[in-house]
Design a protein around this nucleic acid. Structure first.
Length: 640
RNA sequence: GCCCUUGUAGCUCAGUGGUAGAGCACUCCCUUGGUAAGGGAGAGGUCACGAGUUCAAAUCUCGUCAAGGGCUCCA
């Protein structure tokens, strides 16, 4: 039931995310930075988000008006609707009989530059509702009329020169001369529903970005490319991690040996962490009688999002879209005493959900995925402790993958919900108490909980500042009720247990994608599918290389030997391209010394290292899940 | 599901109605080379799939599937 599994990210790609960006205030000017571009470390330019910069807000707001004016000049039939700013730019939705093409965008951009060059003033005009209505009707703009109907007085217009105006609350720049014609770009055209309602007209949205200086625009583009470089779909192919095969169907993931190896490492770590934290693991079926989902109540609600049922014998079976009913049945399979609680059960459960065509996205949104699902059955008074326990485990697991910054949301009781006030109260207090004890700050989403209980959602921040929702912790008063779960209390009465659903990765597939982008494919040593590649300089040293390979493999190191016969430069290049953490060059010297010359991606040249030292460092790195080799281990090295 | 764009070799792409192309990767040969591409040869494609137009379709039209950018949805 955890929602995180297939929740798409609210990340803003390439948004300003560096630490410096957060620190820098608005109004950064390039002034005084003039100077020769020396090769070397350039200070990364800060790119504030719109919400952090009143200047950018005015620029982008105004830019969307300039866009709309330009579009109506070139496409007189286009009707205007809305055109807000986004965190990195702006957009405007039009109703136009013809779709806009790339060529149109170019022409529109040119027209926009022209408008900016005319130094047109933007003026705020306050009008009566009647006057606004008259002005809109004169221009035959039905969408604007609809917007007007929803507006409170005072009604304000913004004019752009004397030829164009739009309903708008502002704020804007005072004159288009404050806009930089060399610091904006039209980025893409997309479909968008009027008022976000898929039953209403589909409009054409033009996305753009705008900055104060051309340098900022260039930096923004650079970051977009950086995000592209990190794209897990790109890296998944390049590093041979996984694929999605047309012939098999959309949204179904094939884990190739390298990706599968990594997944195994992740799963092993996950299992170990769970056993250590008092969980037991379950395996449950992939299909089951459809009545399970009737009982749980999800069939009615999510039928369209499930793979269709299959008829087997006299029964209807259903491919599982979630694991919870299975864990519930396992709980109910015998009489439970209060002394057994809390019961913590986890499963890497692969589920299938029907996602509509057009929504799939790499590993982030798929039709078959594995949840790291767990259910805690506990007494009401155990909620606080159990939640805290989950928070601690979540942090332990996420930080192992270098996700250390979280954004946390606590969602409380919605209007339509089931359960006693007293239980909701107790549960919500339990969540808050746990968050406070953990010392994590959080935002409260009032009424944002599920109908069956309150929840905590956690978003992780990646290396380039994007947020991804992964973990979720949900209390559930519904399923215990529907499946009539109980335990025998101290007084011999039967009582309902509280059920906690939680997922830490959410979906293994999705987490793998996020993690890949976070590391940009440069995985930490302990996680890399190929940790060390031995590069023989000549064939003469092959015997030693093979010997060393054998030793490494016996020690559990994921090592390989490149015997392609290419020259060293090529071997190095291939190894670096595949982002292998450690390349071990073996020439005559190394063979003689029974060692290898190490070139680490993260640590640079580590020099000649004896086999014993290498093995020890690798083992230490694997055991400690280290990002790189510890080269300062105390060792009894043979002195030769 | 909706809008726009795209689908040519394993990967990145060129090819606008007349015999299917390049680079990288792959195989073989030469080269035994010391920290990001040595040289040569070869193999590899029902041009996503199906229908249509045409003497002739990778190319034009329609449909299907898939991918990309969005919208909507997401237990």
């Amino acid at each position: 039931m955890p929602a995180a599994a297939s929740t798409s990210s609210s990340a803003t790609p390439a948004a300003a995310g560096s630490a410096t960006a957060a620190a820098a205030g608005p109004g950064l000017e390039g002034g005084g930075l003039a100077g020769p571009d020396q090769a070397g470390a350039a200070v990364p330019l800060a790119l504030p988000k719109t919400s952090q910069s009143p200047e950018l807000l005015r620029i982008r707001h105004s830019m969307s008006h300039v866009l709309a004016m330009a579009v109506q000049k070139l496409h007189p039939q286009a009707q205007v609707t809305i055109g807000p700013w986004t965190e990195t730019g702006f957009y405007y939705d039009f109703d136009n009989p013809e779709p806009f093409s790339e060529a149109d965008l170019k022409a529109i951009k040119k027209e926009m530059a022209k408008i900016i060059g005319r130094r047109l003033p933007l003026e705020r005009i306050e009008v009566s509702r009647a006057e606004a209505e008259a002005r809109i009707k004169a221009q035959n703009e039905p969408y604007k009329l609809e917007i007007l109907a929803g507006l409170q007085e005072p009604i304000t217009l913004y004019s752009l020169g004397d030829a164009w105006w739009d309903l708008c609350a502002g704020p804007h720049v005072a004159n288009t001369s404050e806009l930089n014609a060399k610091a904006f770009e039209l980025e893409s055209v997309a479909g968008a529903y009027w008022r976000g309602d898929e039953t209403r007209a589909q409009l054409q949205r033009i996305y753009g970005t705008a900055w104060q200086t051309p340098e900022q625009l260039a930096e923004y583009k650079r970051r977009k490319e950086e995000a592209l470089r990190r794209d897990h779909r790109r890296l998944g192919t390049d590093l041979h991690l996984f694929s999605i095969e047309d012939e098999a169907g959309a949204g179904l993931v094939f884990w190739h040996p390298r990706g599968a190896r990594m997944r195994l490492l992740i799963e092993d770590f996950w299992r170990q962490a769970h056993f250590a934290d008092g969980y037991e693991l379950l395996y449950t079926p992939h299909v089951a009688d459809i009545s399970l989902w009737q009982t749980s109540g999800h069939l009615d609600f999510y039928r369209e999002s499930m793979f269709g049922p299959m008829q087997v014998d006299e029964r209807q079976y259903q491919l599982k879209p979630m694991n919870c009913p299975f864990h519930v049945l396992t709980y109910a399979s015998t009489l439970r005493s209060y002394r057994e609680l809390p019961i913590r059960w986890a499963e890497l459960g692969t589920v299938y959900r029907y996602e509509r065509p057009g929504v799939m996205h790499g590993l982030m949104r798929v039709r078959g995925f594995t949840q790291d699902d767990a259910h805690v059955f506990c007494l009401p008074q155990q909620i606080g402790d159990e939640i805290l326990r989950v928070l601690n485990l979540t942090e332990r697991i996420l930080s192992t993958f270098d996700f250390r910054n979280y954004e946390i949301n606590l969602s409380t009781r919605p209007d339509k919900s089931i359960g006693d006030d007293a239980v909701w109260d107790l549960a919500t207090k339990g969540l808050i108490e746990a968050l406070d004890r953990k010392g994590w700050s959080y935002k409260i989403d009032e009424g944002g909980g599920a109908f069956y209980g309150p929840k905590i959602d956690l978003k992780i921040e990646d290396a380039i500042g994007r947020l991804w929702q992964c973990s979720t912790i949900q209390l559930d008063f519904n399923l215990p009720e529907r499946f009539d779960l109980h335990y025998v209390a101290a007084d011999g009465s039967r009582q309902r247990p509280i059920m906690i659903h939680r997922a830490i990765f959410g979906s293994l597939e999705r987490f793998f994608g996020i993690m890949t982008e976070n590391y940009a494919g440069d995985f930490p040593f302990w996680l890399a599918p190929e940790q060390i590649r031995l590069l023989p300089v000549t064939d003469e040293v092959l015997p030693w290389a093979e010997d060393l390979l054998e030793q490494l493999k016996r020690a559990g190191v994921r090592a390989s030997l490149d015997h392609s016969g290419e020259r060293l430069g090529k071997l190095i290049r291939n190894g670096e391209t595949m982002k292998i953490p450690v390349l071990a060059v073996i020439g005559a010297k190394e063979a003689e010394a029974r060692g290898a010359n190490l070139r680490s991606r993260s640590q640079g040249d580590l020099g000649l290292v004896a086999a014993e030292q290498l093995l020890a460092a690798c083992s230490a790195a694997n055991q400690g899940r280290l990002p790189s080799l510890p080269m300062n281990l105390p060792l009894n090295l043979p002195t030769s």
